[in-house]
Design a protein around this nucleic acid. Structure first.
Lengths: 268, 268
DNA sequence: GAACGTCGTTCGGTATAACAGAACAATTTA
DNA sequence: TAAATTGTTCTGTTATACCGAACGACGTTC
């Protein structure tokens, strides 16, 4: 259960702060059960006493919460993070504008819809409107999705010149997620031409078997892709016709958002 | 623009970690515009170079994001927080269960609905379903709401024995927020009897003028209040009849959630 | 167009704060 | 009852986090 401290750039890294962030990260991956001091100390590689002081600091600020049961004490993520996460998502401003329209889209289609932005080449979902009913797609917010096999990723890549697409793909790679994943840069770029033409992208079981995703990009007034929206569904015998219907709906919604952002897109 | 480092218990507080959390806190309050190194250094009371290293550490882990414009560089909250916030909210498990039902409630009533849990005597909203349309209630997630003048707070207090209610009120206080705020413990407790009887609570402009809130508690199998849900609306000429209609709807929804949590509540 | 102010970034010396390990109290397990 | 966990406290030592000052790069102003 060793966790390697993923370091992007240590040049100016404060040890104790990094370790505190490690704790939050690890707790995020064990959010359901919570963790004890000893477990945390072990997984971030510090002494028990060090972990303890780190935890107390985070606790005093509400970044984590504790729960005593029996002689033991379990820590979990705290409510301060809910607040900050909400603010971080609302930050871009896009969320405020997009959310009501995403709700309409979910109501129209009956599917879970999401809003994602680009972060360092990856697509990251920042908001979500769950489908009514008991279906529940796992996809949690804030996790990076691979651009080459996610609907939102492809919708955003389609706006870029091929040279930059190749550049991004080279940096991030194109790992195979299912038998349908496109793993050849040239093939993906060919695929992206269709996407740009139609204005919406499919992820047809390319990331998860049995799951499809239809996405369209949101652009700002300068035409740059700032975000993408998508709906997710089970493949379950959905016809190509169906998927194009969804595509048109998603694109219409994305265009509405783009227009609200000041983009100059003619009405459908 | 001095910010005092709110310290709950410094006995085991790591200075650099506390400062890093300070930064996140301050950035959360200036999430719209972002902040520069100098501004941050000033507002948390450290030297520019110290703030810089703190920022680099947070940046490397995605807890903050930066944006260069002109010669300047602005920092804002990062996407890692979206992820952690989502996990923290999902933690309780209640969210998963409650969200679809909240969506129904919002669809039925046309109002923004929220889910709140108790945290140290305060009510804290952890999820929200925005009303369709362009109305947008400000209420962000994760902020503490006073129990004596919020719908969710009163709904939860109504489940407790009066002695504990007095105890909580004494600790937290009953500041006056509007002319309608109940500031007398005895009067509130009297009010809570009605709440317990009906199964839903009103906040009738007690927290914000012109804004009403109708809430009901969610209980677990042991009958303890674990959360509360609410809908929020403008007062705008809403009749008492109306409010009771809303109350019944909210309570029905809360009961459904309670039943899913294993509570033994007979159908309406 | 030149001098100035302000920005972000880097460097180095020093006081100190963060660390590990050991000891302690309070439990649970055998 | 004994042994082995648990969480918490303490203390000495080293490493480190901090500040102040200096730097280069912009942007601004006279």
């Amino acid at each position: 259960m060793k966790e390697e401290t993923a370091k992007t750039d240590d040049k100016y890294a404060l040890r104790s702060v990094s370790r505190a962030l490690d704790i939050l990260h690890v707790l995020g991956e064990h959010s359901a059960e919570g963790m004890t001091v000893a477990e945390l100390a072990d997984s971030i590689g510090v002494s028990k006493s060090t972990a303890f002081t780190l935890l107390q600091t985070l606790l005093a600020r509400g970044f984590i919460a504790d729960e005593r049961l029996g002689g033991s004490r379990r820590y979990r993520l705290g409510l301060a993070l809910v607040h900050l996460g909400d603010r971080a998502a609302a930050n871009t401003g896009i969320t405020q504008i997009a959310m009501p329209l995403l709700q309409q889209l979910t109501q129209e289609t009956g599917l879970t819809s999401r809003l994602a932005v680009l972060d360092d080449g990856y697509a990251v979902a920042i908001s979500r409107v769950d489908a009514p009913g008991i279906f529940r797609l796992a996809g949690s917010l804030g996790t990076r999705e691979l651009p080459h096999c996610s609907g939102v990723g492809k919708a955003l890549l389609a706006l870029l010149p091929p040279a930059r697409v190749f550049q991004i793909l080279k940096r991030i790679g194109m790992p195979s997620r299912t038998e349908h994943t496109i793993t050849e840069p040239a093939e993906l770029v060919k695929n992206l031409v269709d996407v740009a033409d139609r204005g919406y992208a499919f992820d047809d079981e390319e990331d998860n078997l049995g799951v499809i995703c239809v996405a369209a990009a949101v652009t700002d007034r300068s035409g740059d892709g700032v975000a993408a929206i998508s709906v997710t569904s089970m493949k379950g015998g959905r016809s190509l016709e169906d998927m194009h219907d969804l595509g048109r709906a998603v694109r219409a919604c994305a265009d509405k958002i783009s227009r609200l952002l000041g983009a100059n897109i003619p009405d459908a």
